[in-house]
């Protein structure tokens, strides 16, 4: 953090300057006011309220009553959803985020090497990222439908195995990973831009030293883009923690329990394998009337996300730096 505070004591400041300063403080306040309000009402207040509710029994009807740590104990010890959601998140961070970063980097590298039709390829690779998540997920559940989906039809024609994809607890997360890899556009562009920023001279120097392609990548490219890799990993982790729409819609559509006859869909189909923390919050808070337990899970999610954000802010001072 750069020191911005003035060291001059107010007494030493001539009145003119003080007035000017007050004016400038007011001006700053004016410019910042939308955010100051937004931050207090839509960030600080609900966070404090979440902490408050986590110690309360509140079903939305009767007034909240204090229950101490009961909700915390329930979530960590007794809830059938919390730990599966956490382990799923860990799996997705390990596999999905890693693969996404590797694949994004690979596609970014590929794009920088393409000589003919780079624009067309770039557009094609980028487009899936824009597909609305609900639409993309429904499309993938259809594509990967075990019985009649095109993927299994083609796999069967090629004489390959045909998994049950979104309908099999062992394959549901790999299926979600496939969906996430399809929408690689954001990472591709970020990596592409950072790859183009690597100074040419470093490559030339390496080539003179007789470095082969792998060595050039390992000793020139990677060190140059490592901050971007870190950025991609951390933001990917945070995005995974709040992963909601894709697993929920995939579970609903694949299970066949959707809308209709008043059947209630409990997220995580099949066998809680697609359960994530936000879905647990929704299930507890908006399906089971258990506001308190929902807030406990929310606070766990908050803590984990803020730890990641903290790492990001420490490691990438560029995030914070300002001109002075």
């Amino acid at each position: 953090m750069s020191p911005v505070a003035s060291t001059v004591t107010p007494a030493a400041v001539p009145p003119q300057l003080r007035a000017k300063r007050r004016k400038s403080a007011l001006r700053t306040l004016g410019f910042l006011s939308p955010w100051l309000i937004g931050f207090s009402v839509f960030f600080a207040y609900p966070l404090i309220a979440t902490v408050y509710f986590s110690f309360m029994k509140y079903d939305g009807f009767a007034d909240p009553t204090w229950v101490g740590l009961r909700n915390w104990k329930y979530v960590f010890q007794d809830s059938p959803f919390f730990w599966p959601a956490l382990t799923n998140t860990a799996w997705l961070i390990l596999v999905m985020v890693t693969l996404r970063v590797a694949f994004g980097l690979g596609i970014g590298l590929l794009i920088t090497k393409i000589k003919t039709g780079a624009g067309v390829f770039r557009t094609l690779f980028y487009l899936p990222y824009l597909a609305p998540p609900v639409a993309a997920t429904m499309a993938f559940v259809f594509l990967l439908n075990p019985g009649t989906g095109p993927t299994n039809t083609i796999l069967a024609k090629l004489g390959l195995g045909t998994p049950d994809w979104f309908n099999d607890a062992a394959w549901s997360k790999p299926s979600l990973t496939l969906l996430a890899l399809w929408g690689i556009g954001d990472l591709m562009v970020i990596f592409m831009a950072s790859l183009l920023d690597v100074p040419k001279e470093q490559y030339e120097a390496a080539e003179l030293d007789g470095a082969n392609a792998w060595h050039r990548f390992r000793y020139v490219t990677l060190p140059n883009i490592s901050p971007i890799v870190l950025f991609a990993v951390i933001t990917g982790m945070i995005a995974t923690m709040q992963y909601y729409t894709e697993p929920l819609v995939a579970g609903k559509v694949a299970s066949g329990v959707i809308g209709g006859s008043g059947q209630q869909f409990e997220p995580g189909y099949p066998d809680k394998s697609t359960l994530t923390m936000p879905q647990v919050i929704y299930n507890l808070g908006f399906q089971r009337f258990d506001t308190g337990a929902a807030c406990v899970v929310a606070l766990v999610l908050f803590t984990l996300a803020m730890v990641c954000t903290g790492i990001l802010m420490r490691r990438r001072s560029g995030f914070m730096s300002a001109e002075d």
Binding site: N145, P146, G147, A254, G256, S261
Partner: peptide, 15 residues
């Protein structure tokens, strides 16, 4: 189960 469930995913909607 596996064979039945796969058949199920190729069937039409309940409603």
């Amino acid at each position: 189960f596996r064979k039945l469930d796969r058949y199920r995913t190729s069937l039409g909607d309940e409603w």
